[in-house]
Amino acid sequence: MAVERVFDHLRAIATGAKYLFLKPRLTLMYPDEVEDLPRGYRGMITYNHETCISCSLCAMVCPADAIKMYLPKEVPEGEKRPKRYPGINYTRCIFCGFCVSICPTFSLQHSTIHDVSFYTFEEQIFRPEEFAKGPPKPQYDKEPVKVRVIPDEERGLRYERV
């Protein structure tokens, strides 16, 4: 009984020592290596202002109230009832993709961009004009290597250059 416990301790230490000298490391060296994202990845949302019909279904379906309908900043003269267009608040967005699914004209689409940082709270609220310009591009010091993640029986995860 007590002897078994001693062997349990030795086995634990041996396992630790094995991992100390073997070479499985699961770290993705992020700014130097970037994961090649699969199709259907739900990243930040692109918006096509030209095809938008201002139906406000996206604002209706949004479970986090991230998308709201905004009046244009400068209402054209003579327009009595200006159309409202969607803007997005990324502090609220949960990237569920309901707005993309419900959009009747496919004006909202997912991009693969997800690694963007902001300095202020207000910068994360995109009015329709900025929303139409697309999500901001992530800034890298040098061009990152794109890698694909492959599950591996022995190592857990492997990264393969695309």
Binding site: G16, Y19, R25
Partner: peptide, 10 residues
């Protein structure tokens, strides 16, 4: 470093 290596980190 040692704790990281055993836990497959850097």
């Amino acid at each position: 470093k040692i704790a990281a290596k055993v836990q497959m980190r850097y």
